[in-house]
């Protein structure tokens, strides 16, 4: 039998790239079918490729969050219901009108149309798809290996990144330990007891993330050569531009009104990212003992991401 591929056959960067592409596809697409496809693809990938590791135990949490978002969206649509006389009514609930003392009265419930329900569900599904694709990456990618491949260009925020990347998987293992400890005190393991677990879990997770960051720094992570002042300034400016344009661009795409502008912004953002990495890597002194090789599996994932991205740009998912 052929050896089964597991998550570590590919680099964690590949998983994150695939996840981000899938999230973009889900973000730009208006059809519920695409969202469902993205959701199920993420889940199938997790179940097929995951390994026995602390960070792969987070699936339940992401599923719960995704389900919660869909339900919340639909419930919101039912409660804050804007009625359109042309729509077909699906549910006829009694309406309320609440006077807040300012502005026009707020209308709650009333006749809920099929269209409102389905658009609520699609909206919820879109967020769920984004959550699950990110969940896929964080369950499959080894956070430590990812951290190791963080470009030193990002050093200025690298300690923060290392804490952040490691925090979610760490929180899940802390949560398991603290819940076990709480059951020793005879307290329930249910959701109601969450409040009591938040403090020890967070404290533990942050502590251990910080200790990892401290250990990396003690071993030389973040060392760099000298850069002239103007280059440092240029590097900072381009990093700032990269973050700014990428966020505004993705927002524009998600809102959906200004698609072309969104893509233009994202293009500028990507350009600025490369510029920033380029300038910063001039000061890079890091070497590699074993050069990172692109595995067959990586190539597969990357080409899949590229295909998805092209399809998204061509508008196949709309």
């Amino acid at each position: 039998m052929a050896k089964r591929f597991t998550a570590s056959a590919a680099s964690p960067l590949s998983w994150w790239l695939l996840a981000i592409t899938m999230a973009v596809v889900a973000g730009v697409s208006q059809s519920a079918l695409t969202q469902i496809l993205v959701c199920s693809a993420s889940l199938i990938a997790i179940l097929m490729f995951r390994e026995e590791a602390p960070w792969s135990r987070s699936v339940k949490f992401y599923l719960f969050l995704a389900g919660f978002v869909v339900i919340a969206r639909v419930l919101f649509r039912i409660a804050f219901n804007i009625q359109n006389p042309e729509d077909t009514t699906a549910l006829n609930l009694p309406g309320f009108s609440i006077n807040l003392g300012f502005g026009p009265p707020v209308e709650l419930f009333g006749a809920v149309s099929v269209e409102a329900l389905s658009s609520g569900a699609t909206d919820g599904l879109r967020l769920a798809a984004i959550i699950l694709s990110i969940g896929m990456a964080s369950s499959l990618a080894n956070p430590r290996t990812l951290l190791k491949s963080t470009p030193s260009a990002l050093y200025e925020i690298a300690s923060a990144i290392s804490v952040a990347i490691n925090l979610a998987p760490q929180m899940i293992s802390s949560l398991q330990r603290v819940r076990k400890a709480r059951s020793l005190r005879g307290r329930s393991k249910g959701l109601g007891s969450m409040a009591g677990t938040v403090i020890p879990v967070l404290e533990d997770a942050i502590d251990s993330s910080l200790s990892l960051a401290a250990s990396m720094d003690s071993r030389g992570f973040g060392r760099r050569g000298n850069l002239s002042k103007s280059l440092v300034l240029a590097a900072r400016l381009s990093s700032l531009m990269a973050v700014g344009f990428l966020s505004v661009g993705s927002f524009a795409l998600l809102v959906g009104q200004t698609q072309t502008l969104g893509w233009v912004f994202i293009a500028i953002g990507i350009f600025a990212t490369f510029a920033s990495i380029r300038i910063n890597s001039k000061s890079q002194i890091r070497t590699r003992f074993e050069p990172v090789k692109l595995q067959f599996f990586d190539a597969l994932i990357l080409s899949l991401s590229a295909l998805l991205l092209i399809a998204a740009i061509l508008g196949w998912f709309e």
């Binding site: 250990s215 973040g222 060392r223 890091r286």
Partner: peptide, 29 residues
């Protein structure tokens, strides 16, 4: 200066022993 923490497993950055040993040298170029 080399620094060793109370719990070594919480400070490991790699998957295998060899990768862990060279990590510091890689950072130092």
């Amino acid at each position: 200066v080399g620094f060793v923490n109370q719990q070594p497993e919480s400070s490991f950055v790699s998957d295998t022993v060899k990768q862990e040993l060279v990590y510091g040298m890689e950072q130092l170029g």
